[in-house]
Structures are given as C-alpha cells and as structure tokens.
C-alpha cells in the first residue's frame, strides 16, 4: 500500500489541475447554453447554411443541438479530449518516470515484486481518474441544473458524463503498455499529445465520411454520445472491444515488465 499512496500523492497536483480544468470547461460551456437555447431558431438557420461535412466533423446533430443533452453531447468531445490527455500522460509517465528520473534503482531494489509495483502504480492511476470523474460529474450536474430550461433524463446525462472515464481508461491502458515496452521515454508530452490528437482527428474525419468502421479505430468514438442524448445507450460490441483492449494492454504490461532489464543510467 505504501507504493500506492506514494504514487497517488505524487500525482495529486496534476490530478487536481486536470479536474479543475475539466470542471471549468464544462461550466463555461453550460454557461453559454441559456443564450444559445433562446436564439435556437436563429442559430439553426445559420447552421443550415453551412456545408454538411463541416457539421458532421464538428459532431453537430441538428435535431438535438438545442436540447440540453444534445448541447452537452456536442461540447463533450472537447472534455473527452482533455480527459484523454490527462489519462495518456498518466499512463505514459507513471512507470517510465522511474527510469527517466533515475529512481528505478531505488524502487526495484526494495523487497517487492515487479508485479506489486505495477499493481500499485496502476491502481493509483485508476483511482486518480475515478476521483477526477466523480468531481467532474458533480460539477457538470450542478451546472446543468442551473442552466436547464426543460426536464432532461438524468440517466442519459450520467451515461454521457461517465463515458469520460471509459475513454480515459482506454488511453491509460495504451499509455501504460507503451511506457513498459519502450526502453526509455525521454519526454512524455510529445508521445501522449501526439497519440491523443491522432485518435481525435481519426474520429473527426471518420465522422465526416459517416463510415461506421472508423469508429472501431478511435477510443473517442466508442461511445456515441449524440445518440445517447437522443435516448440511446452504450453499444455492446464497442464495450466488449474496449474491455478486451484494456485487459490485453494491462496483461502484456505485467508480462513485459516482470522480465524487463533495468539498465544503469
């Protein structure tokens, strides 16, 4: 447990910063909703003048955009992007920092197994993300209650919000396995930002073509928040693939890390 607490403490600042950022982001977006809903007719007319592909790329759904959940689903893409960067950073750095900051010799000569190290680090990362999500959910819910005009389904609101964790866990697992496979990661940010934005734009371009298969290749599209806003739910194939991917990444992280040679600096 000592390693778990140590890691949780080490990432405390970054977790708080990311959480505040995401809550602020959702608050800012919801604060625009009342004006937006009031001038809905005008806004729709303006949007209809825009090319179809642009609307699709931005994830705008004309039927629902003026409802609270429709609006939320649209803005959620940027919150998910933010959360993905947090998770990918966390996953990529939490194991690799020991080698980068040359502290591996300290930790790995303590009476613990490598599996225990991975377990502690992984659980600290997951707990950090869960805390982020809980606070985000509360913040988003409070803000939505303030700005709402009509009734909305709390269940659907919850499903959209919690897909943040869903996306984050996939990026965490991806970052984790990358950091274990790499011999040494000199700098976390280029890797995590590069990966996250690559997947984000795959999602954007996939949406413009309307090609459903592209959805399988980017974690950002595993949960179709726009359809949840209209009363849909999570789609079983995507949930299963996501779980399989996360499990595979984590299992291989353990297998590789247990046998990995930790070289002198």
């Amino acid at each position: 447990m000592n390693m778990f607490w140590h890691e949780l403490r080490a990432y405390r600042k970054s977790t708080i910063t990311w959480t505040i950022t995401m809550v602020a982001l959702v608050a800012m977006m919801f604060s625009m909703y009342p004006t937006f809903a009031k001038d809905a007719g005008q806004f729709k007319a303006m949007l209809e003048g825009m090319p179809d592909t642009v609307l699709k790329a931005m994830g705008l759904d004309m039927d629902t955009i003026t409802s609270l959940l429709g609006f939320y689903a649209y803005t959620f893409a940027y919150i998910a992007l933010c959360g993905a960067i947090q998770a990918m950073n966390l996953g990529t750095s939490i194991v690799s920092k020991e080698v980068r900051e040359k502290t591996a010799d300290f930790l790995l000569t303590k009476p613990v197994t490598r599996s225990q190290i991975i377990t502690s680090k992984l659980s600290a990362a997951v707990v950090s993300l869960i805390l982020t999500n809980v606070i985000y959910l509360v913040g988003a819910f409070l803000m939505a209650s303030v700005v709402r005009i009509d009734e909305y389904s709390f269940m659907n609101f919850f499903l959209i919000s919690i897909s943040l964790l869903f996306v984050q866990l996939m990026f965490l697992a991806l970052g984790f396995v990358i950091s274990v496979l790499a011999r040494k990661i000199k700098s976390v940010l280029p890797i995590s930002l590069g990966t996250v934005f690559a997947f984000f734009f795959i999602g954007v371009f996939g949406a413009t073509t309307g090609d459903q298969t592209v959805r399988y290749f980017t974690p950002f599209k595993y949960v179709d928040v726009a359809s949840i806003a209209k009363g849909g739910g999570y789609e079983t194939p995507f949930v299963i693939i996501a779980i399989l991917f996360i499990a595979a990444a984590i299992v291989s992280s353990y297998v590789v890390y247990v046998k990995k040679d930790i070289h002198a600096v």
């Binding site: 080490a10 900051e101 040359k102 502290t103 010799d105 300290f106 000569t109 303590k110 009476p111 613990v112 197994t113 225990q116 600096v265």
Partner: peptide, 20 residues
Amino acid sequence: HGPEIKREIGYLPSEVFYYD
C-alpha cells in the same frame, strides 16, 4: 526469491537519484 532476499539487503548505487 528476489523480494525475500532484498528484505535483508542494503544497496548504495554509484550515482544516487531520488524523487526530487
């Protein structure tokens, strides 16, 4: 028996780096 052995080992590397 790595972890069990390391309980009784003290190690000082040539270059020391700790969590800054």
